[in-house]
Amino acid sequence: MRLIAENLGGERGGESVFSAIEFALGDGQALVVTGANGAGKSTLLRIIAGLLPVAAGRVRFEGGGEDFPSAASACHYLGHLNAMKTALSVKENLCFWRDFSGAGSAGVEDALETVGLGGIGHLPFGYLSTGQRRRAAIAKLLVSYRPLWLLDEPTAGLDKASEERFGGLMTQHLEEGGIIVAATHLPLGIDRAKALRMGESG
């Protein structure tokens, strides 16, 4: 599978945020997008996912076969918001996203165990702290399989140990042939990642 951006430009509210972004990612490769606030990191991720229209150039997703014909169908999008309902329990939330997106490598219990939330799946999501909520959202990446992970500030609110654990999860995803595009200010703990610094050239 390959994710390719060619001369990609993005705009927000009619104003160009970035232009001439180029990258190509193959199986097992990661791209870490950095840049100042407002440089267009989140916009770039949303354009790749297809949530925002492309302003210039194009972004292609190849080799996904019948299961993943487009970047939108092949991606897990982890945005600023966790996409979880506060009134439902953590487990109910994860079960819903597993049913909605299709089953993955890990069961709900296993995924919670992996992100260090084992034993609190029965609590309403609203009772969790910021870091725990983020970890529950990360568990969402595990309960259904997608080759492409689009992560927007994935480690915001995480403590040191959780950051390292998440770094391990990302490394594992890459070793299994996945692709990661992450926008962040903090070091993510994945080796051999390509870097894209926004807001300087564009």
């Binding site: 939108a72 996409a83 299709g102």
Partner: peptide, 14 residues
Amino acid sequence: EDGSLDLLVLGNDR
């Protein structure tokens, strides 16, 4: 408000 809508829209291809 909680970001679920993005994921529901992304499911459009499936």
